[in-house]
């Protein structure tokens, strides 16, 4: 399906989705190709409601294998809500309802028999604020492998912890103090610890919800570098407020506005020649 046509010649029932933004009526139908080669997850016609209020409208988006897709847009545009649909973290919010399909390996993760607990082991998450558990660095990383029974003995566990810390680029800094509390690390180290914790269970997809918004520029640079490394082994979806970050780390970018996916495409295209008026206004800093 080629949605670029929709912008030029809106068909009647799509006109109804037109909402008032600023002074003008603007068509919020998705512009650009939301599919990708070799997708790891597919979001299809997803609507999310908080009680009576709808937060996400008819979103379609693929998460590609071994690539990074970034979600940008002004606050309250539904990008975090959508991200949390991917591992069903929205289930923990009272009154939150998700319609539509989120597919992984061709199966809807919202199907009745899918256990969100097992899904979350395959779709890991890194949060906005570093949230290491009040345990030692070792126990933080060993948390997932322990609860999922991934290891037989202590040697296996130590190996997983070491590899995970290494892949998160934290091992050199903490290898002499694995028994110290994870909460004692600096903000950037804590966030990398959380990434190590997430990858310790070998998820297929990693969701990152503004992972650098609480960090200083140097720590941010390290995390961005790390995301580039992680892409080799994982599929990554990242929500960010920093357009530079989206440009640096991602291959595809999706721009959200008021709960609608307005434009999606290769990152370089979005930032050099946005097709939708709202995208252009946002990335050139005219609003948002």
């Amino acid at each position: 399906m080629d949605t670029t046509e929709a912008l030029d010649m809106p068909i009647p029932d799509q006109l109804e989705e037109t909402v008032i933004s600023g002074k003008k009526d603007i068509d919020l139908t998705t512009v650009g190709d939301y599919t990708t080669e070799n997708p790891r997850m597919k979001i299809r016609d997803v609507n999310v409601f908080y009680g009576a209020k709808q937060a996400v409208f008819d979103v379609n988006l693929d998460i590609g294998s071994n690539s990074v897709v970034s979600m940008i847009g002004p606050s309250g545009c539904g990008k975090t809500t959508l991200l949390r649909c991917l591992n069903r973290m929205n289930d923990t919010i009272d009154g939150c309802r998700v319609e539509g399909r989120v597919e992984m390996d061709g199966k809807n993760v919202y199907a009745r028999k899918v256990d969100p607990v097992l899904l979350r082991a395959r779709v890991g998450m890194v949060f906005q604020k570093p949230n290491p558990f009040p345990k030692s660095i070792f126990d933080n990383v060993a948390y997932g492998p322990r609860i999922h029974g991934l290891v037989r003995d202590r040697t296996d566990l130590e190996e997983i912890v070491h590899t995970s810390l290494e892949r998160a680029g934290l091992l050199d800094e903490v290898k002499d103090r694995l028994d110290q509390p994870g909460t004692g690390l600096s903000g950037g180290q804590q966030q990398r610890l959380c990434i190590a914790r997430a990858i310790a269970v070998s998820p297929e997809v990693i969701l990152m919800d503004e992972p650098c918004s609480a960090l200083d520029p140097i720590a941010t640079a390290r995390i961005e570098e790390l995301i580039g490394e992680l892409r080799k082994n994982f599929s990554i979806a990242i929500v960010t407020h920093s357009m530079q970050q989206a440009a640096r780390v991602s291959q595809r970018t999706a721009y959200f506005h008021l709960g609608y996916l307005v434009e999606v495409g290769p990152t370089k295209d979005i930032f050099t020649m946005p097709k939708h008026q709202l995208t252009e206004e946002y990335i050139t800093g005219r609003f948002g």
Binding site: R120, F127, N131, F133, V201
Partner: peptide
């Protein structure tokens, strides 16, 4: 954040 962190790891 502690609950989210743990639930996000696939803990029950």
């Amino acid at each position: 954040a502690m609950r989210d962190g743990s639930l996000g790891m696939g803990a029950t």
